[in-house]
Design a protein around this nucleic acid. Structure first.
Lengths: 134, 134
DNA sequence: CTTGATTTGTACGTATGTATT
DNA sequence: AAATACATACGTACAAATCAA
């Protein structure tokens, strides 16, 4: 339950509740969340607080939002294995918006940056890539 | 300049401007950004729009915010090189809030998940780690 | 050390726009 | 066409942390 007298912010409390439902499997990948309006009414919160809660989950990569559609639990795409070469170096970071568009990855998903010997860095979508050391 | 008649959302336009200043070096790591109130007044925006703009940059890992303090351009910690072993598998994702606290990493920074042979997955902070293939 | 000013955080409300169902 | 759902954008008020006088 969301406790208006607790120290923790209301939208963080709601995010905690929803995150638990996702991690416990009560909400499975592909399942839609209740609408913002419904969540606001059932938890006694403003729609603003609900929006902030769901934005937190979006930025953690747990849910996807699309205007007009419902919000749903992110599905885990099959991971493509990318084999590293000896000496390759790998970093990770959040993509720019342009990179998100190019790679078709949603908010809350990081990218791999693979630096191979004597070549330009390669980008891989974080959620659909597993790197394997040689 | 922020164009109120443009198709792009106002807070995204402001985020674009600030992101350009960071990437061009006009704002260096450690530099503070103007306050939300100042940005709102100088760009003719509401403080709400400014807050959303800066939140975008925070979630891209470009700036750090702390209540009471200013918002500043994130400094790049020196990267510690972690050597992979043959067959190791690596994934990347956004950390949970608990993991962020444990590893001391800010909003907008992903983590490496390294699966070594016959052992529990290890977590590494994304911004301060470079993985190297053997 | 205390006070007051500054800055970001939380939470609410309203209105309108756009995309999907 | 109508209803639903998320997006943008404005406003207000107060709280909490920090900073500077």
């Amino acid at each position: 339950m969301v406790d208006h007298d607790a120290d923790r912010a209301l939208h963080k409390q709601l995010a905690d509740l929803l995150r638990d439902e996702i991690n416990s499997g009560a909400l499975s990948p592909g399942d839609v969340l209740p609408s913002e309006l419904y969540l606001a009414q059932t938890h006694g919160l403003s729609q603003t607080a609900v929006r902030r809660a769901i934005e937190l989950l979006q930025n953690e990569g747990l849910v996807t939002k699309r205007r007009g559609r419902r919000t749903w639990v992110r599905e885990r795409p099959p991971r493509q294995v990318v084999l590293l070469n000896p000496g390759d170096e790998v970093e990770t970071r959040m993509p720019t918006e342009a990179e998100r568009r190019q790679l078709g990855i949603p908010v809350g998903e990081p990218v791999f940056v693979v630096r191979r010997h004597d070549s330009e860095p390669e980008l891989f979508a974080g959620a659909s890539t597993t790197l394997r050391a040689p």
